[in-house]
Design a protein around this nucleic acid. Structure first.
Lengths: 152, 152
DNA sequence: GTGAATGCAAACTCTTTGCATGACT
DNA sequence: AGTCATGCAAAGAGTTTGCATTCAC
């Protein structure tokens, strides 16, 4: 299944979940959800607002935050804190599949990766800790290929 | 080498590094450094200010932040963002040894762990990525033993 | 004496909340 | 009607900055 299929999955399952929880498919909120469905990686609240405006769909800041909070509480959106002073948000795969992030220290760009071995290490680790582990975030910091190029 | 030895190591190597960079061992900044040396885990800026006040060493908020920023830029302090709305800081082992953190979703308490297998997984991962990876943070979220106890 | 460091208060940024307006069932 | 949702503006919270004063060398 390609990316369009996944988009559709997330979009429709999220809309269903919202409806099931008694929420209405209003215009502004739908715009946020549809935008998130189209992304390949995380966005800040500001970026979401700006992208929607470029699309001619002005949505108030508070509405964006409220939509994100709602989606996060339903598990449809992952909130990501990379140590910048703002949060990033992205669609969370309903199947539980997930990836982690790479942050370029120079340009601030965020990209993503998956690693099965890392997931296994964390799962094994969770077993030996006295915490009940329910989730995890991994952020790698470094220099992206573009920024690492020789300055010459 | 026990904890006192490590404290001493960090304290003196940090003081040396500051002096080497042309900074003066002033009272307020030294108080911050000495406090950090005594900790076993990360503190927020607010906690640092409050603990110093309890010790009778009033240090202004701005000074605390400036000290932390300076120490961070020298690599002597690690800054940790757990997705709460504030950062946490802790002494960074000069040897490069490090640990990661567990955050209790209920009480907000932070504890730490080390895991060699996790470190190896990340090191292996870094090799196959096109990024030049310079650091990483891992945060596990869950419920701490205290909060997981039956309510009865 | 000179440059660094401090502390206060004001400024800033991201995020949340109060409240009146508007939309959907 | 009765909710839920929106948008603006104001409030909050953590962090940073401007600036005059104080401190260390």
């Amino acid at each position: 299944m390609g990316r369009n299929g996944l988009e559709q999955d997330w979009l429709s399952s999220t809309q269903q979940r919202l409806e099931g929880a008694g929420h209405r498919p209003s215009g502004p909120r739908s715009a946020v959800i549809e935008l998130l469905a189209r992304q390949t990686c995380c966005l800040t609240a500001r970026e979401i607002t700006d992208l929607l405006r470029e699309d001619g769909r002005d949505v108030g800041t508070a509405t964006v935050y409220r939509a994100l909070e709602l989606l996060h509480s339903l598990g449809a959106v992952q909130r990501l804190d990379t140590g910048e002073r703002f949060a990033r948000y992205e669609a969370a795969d309903p199947s539980g599949e997930h990836h982690h992030h790479l942050l370029c220290a120079r340009c601030g760009r965020v990209s993503q990766f998956e690693d099965e071995r890392l997931e296994r290490a964390i799962a094994g680790l969770a077993d030996r800790l006295s915490y009940r582990v329910e989730g995890h975030d991994v952020v790698l910091r470094g220099t992206c290929p573009g920024c690492a190029e020789p300055i010459a």
